[in-house]
């Protein structure tokens, strides 16, 4: 690209920049309306059952389930990797189903039963899936690990409940465990350390299958 063209496009960039300013410019009036002490930030009550324990919270409606767990209940085993549903580190099991807790408001879960990694097992008493991850070295930095484990537990249940997958040959057949099935079903959990091959073996071990 020539320098001239670069400059012409740069001017358009100013427009883009000004557009951003303009968005913000509209905001002060609104901010002034909202001016109030922090304690007055409106909250709403929500009741959750987390790892079998009933918890009542008063939350800013903007609080995601992920932040409610991490910042309000101090259950930091559930990780924030991207906060946009692109990595799976925040996976928890809600009402028996795995979801990304970052893309859910806590308020959407009034009355829900939530299982986090802390609810599966403790260092002294690991869940079989947690123990299999240790045995097969199915993790490295450990940051995606709680999400991987919650997902893996849920995946085995999904196969049992006959939830089909993208790689299933015959949709009308019953869902079955296989290495490729597992890898497809676990693909919503990114591991940048690249422990995938070991994770597949850990989950297969728990499922009683060969990876």
């Amino acid at each position: 690209m020539s320098d001239t063209a670069g400059f012409a496009l740069s001017r358009r960039g100013v427009l883009a920049g000004s557009a951003a300013s303009a968005v913000a410019a509209a905001a002060p009036a609104e901010a002034a309306l909202q001016r109030m002490p922090a304690s007055a930030t409106p909250t709403m009550p929500v009741r959750l059952t987390v790892n079998g324990e009933k918890r009542e919270l008063a939350l800013d409606p903007r609080t995601t389930l992920l932040d409610a767990l991490r910042e309000h209940l101090h259950l930091t085993g559930t990780k924030k990797g991207c906060d946009h549903g692109q990595c799976g580190a925040c996976t928890v099991i809600v009402e028996g189903r795995r979801i990304n807790s970052c893309l859910s408001l806590a308020l959407q879960h009034e009355g829900d039963e939530i299982t986090t990694i802390e609810g599966l097992g403790t260092p002294g008493k690991l869940h079989p899936m947690q123990a299999a991850f240790v045995k097969h070295d199915g993790y490295q930095c450990g940051y995606c690990t709680p999400g991987q484990i919650c997902s893996a537990v849920a995946v085995l249940d999904e196969i049992k409940r006959d939830v089909p997958s993208h790689v299933q040959g015959d949709l009308t057949a019953k869902a079955r465990f296989s290495n490729m099935e597992l890898r497809e079903r676990m693909s919503g959990n990114i591991c940048r350390c690249g422990a995938y091959s070991n994770i597949a073996e850990a989950v297969a071990d728990v499922a009683g299958e060969r990876a």
């Binding site: 549903g85 795995r98 299933q168 919503g188």
Partner: peptide, 12 residues
């Protein structure tokens, strides 16, 4: 549907 997103997202 199964070709889209991830298991977690499809659950929600």
């Amino acid at each position: 549907i199964l070709a889209g997103a991830s298991g977690q997202l499809r659950n929600k």
